[in-house]
């Protein structure tokens, strides 16, 4: 699992690559720290190369969503594959995120 964060067009973009499972959750959460601490910018999680997400991964996304919404910022999930979208639908979170 690899996570890189960059700023693009005034938005903070994190590119997630690999499988976000329980084992890599803590490391990913630490890598996303700039997103958790940001204020006033919309956040983008680029999931083009994210193959799989476990419930501990969903927990990070939801915590990020709650933190951002509290500050009035949006969280956008970009290029989510079908497997991950299924998980988000099953857990009812699909209506809380924006998709690109």
């Amino acid at each position: 699992m690899k996570t890189t964060v960059k700023e693009l067009d005034g938005r903070l973009v994190a590119v997630l690559t690999g499988e976000l499972d329980t084992a890599s959750a803590a490391e990913t959460e630490a890598a996303l720290k700039p997103l958790f601490e940001s204020t006033g910018k919309d956040l983008v999680l680029d999931c083009s190369n994210l193959e799989y997400i476990a419930s501990s991964g969903i927990r990070i996304l939801v915590n990020l969503l709650k933190t951002a919404k509290a500050k009035g910022d949006q969280v956008v999930l970009k290029n989510v594959n079908e497997v991950i979208r299924d998980v988000l639908e099953l857990t009812g979170f699909v209506s809380y995120f924006d998709f690109e």
Binding site: S55, V62, K66, E89, L90, T91, G92, F93, V94, S95, Y96
Partner: peptide, 8 residues
């Protein structure tokens, strides 16, 4: 139905 998990 799409109910969210408990604790969120």
């Amino acid at each position: 139905l799409a109910n969210v998990p408990v604790g969120v």
